[in-house]
Design a protein around this nucleic acid. Structure first.
Lengths: 225, 225
DNA sequence: ATAGTATGTTTTCGGTGTAAACATGCCGCT
DNA sequence: AGCGGCATGTTTACACCGAAAACATACTAT
């Protein structure tokens, strides 16, 4: 609010006043439209109305800008998932709720989701902020697994193994959906039902008590006979 | 063998004689080393020893070359998975076998695997050969699901829903592994065991009879107590 | 008021994809 | 055998990109 707001969009001023945020915002628009692969710093500069090298005052290079976007995306993922976890509910339901939030975020923001996992960003290991944000997002899941295992809802094994499985399953579903790989016209269900069925099966993979399975399944998975 | 072989590597000949295959081979090397994002047609031409626009005689554009590589990769995936399916075995075991072959191929060829799903290739819908190859690979899984459901090994629901779940789970695991996202030093198991545990859980998600679950699990999933 | 510094610009380099016009030489037909 | 057409490769050219270096501007703290 202090300086940036007082100066933003003043066409005659030499200093933009808000360039960093303006670039990030334009970058989000750009990757939404053409993907992170096609992001051009020069094009961003043009959109924002600034010289082609001005972005380098705010980001070491193109990769640096992408890293910042990815960091924000991990934080948003942490938020939407942890928001849906309610300590009053059991872990199975919390997994379904957080999983659905995760998938809906990924599918609503496909290019941002691709960005945080894809290979557009290089040398991730050199950006500790990025590692930290990613780890925080994973910890939401890991903690849920630990609690579920402890409470006997999930298999009594290492929470890391449970988390790896859940994350793989949900991550894979997100990407296959985003990439349009599921042949939509051949699907027996609409997308919302598909999503819930997938999450139910994902839960089933790690649930401990078979009677839970018998109780839960018929609600969500349509049987053929 | 006919003309290409008789003329290959003749340094003095104007015509390369083998350019298409030489480019594809060089492209595989290149994406193995630097990823598909960094593939440069000009660099390929240089490696092969040909002018920078010669590749355009064999591929409409860079995307066309990548599409051909992707098509080959899908075919290889179809082969390695279907090779491991043995009609004499039950469907659960066949899923574990084919799943392991799929994962090992993906992990041994990370850049090729990324290529076939990532966004390096654009306008996939314009390449029917690519769609066909992808569909063939998926059909290996889909047919296994149909048989498993019919035999009562898997949940009695639409094979497509079973296949979506398995594929998501295995695909997600492959990508998280390839992308180095699993924090390796925090894993309680070595990679081979991690892989088998994941496949067991993936199977568990769709297995019908709880007693199968009780039988199968202790073999592969280490319990904490 | 002014010095220092953060920010933005100009210029320049080497790299890329790819279109257009041109050169070469293999293959089939007479 | 010779010749013409066509597949294949080359030259040249253009517009774009990331990024480094030297320079210009104006905000901020003293």
């Amino acid at each position: 609010m202090s300086r940036a707001a007082s100066n933003q969009n003043n066409a005659t001023s030499y200093h933009h006043g808000n360039l960093r945020e303006a670039l990030l915002s334009a970058a989000v628009d750009s990757i939404r439209e053409q993907g992170a692969e096609n992001l051009s710093l020069r094009a961003l500069a043009r959109v924002v109305g600034v010289s082609q090298t001005a972005p380098y005052r705010h980001f070491a290079d193109k990769n640096g800008l992408l890293v910042e976007l990815a960091r924000q995306t991990f934080d948003e993922l942490s938020r939407v998932t942890s928001e849906r976890i309610d300590p009053a509910l059991n872990c199975a339901d919390n997994l379904l709720r957080a999983g659905e939030a995760y998938l809906r975020y990924a599918i609503a923001n496909p290019e941002k989701y691709r960005l945080i996992f894809g290979s557009s960003i290089t040398q991730r290991e050199q950006y500790p902020q990025l590692q930290t944000a990613a780890r925080s997002a994973f910890n939401v899941l890991l903690q849920l697994m630990a609690e579920g295992a402890q409470r006997g809802e999930f298999l009594p094994t290492e929470p890391m193994l449970l988390a790896n499985n859940c994350w793989s399953s949900i991550h894979g579903f997100a990407l296959l959906t985003i990439d349009g790989v599921f042949a939509r016209k051949e699907q027996p269900l609409g997308f919302d039902d598909m999503l819930r069925v997938h999450l139910q099966m994902t839960l089933r993979a790690i649930q401990h008590n078979p009677q839970h399975i018998q109780q839960n399944l018929p609600d969500a998975i349509p049987f053929s006979d």
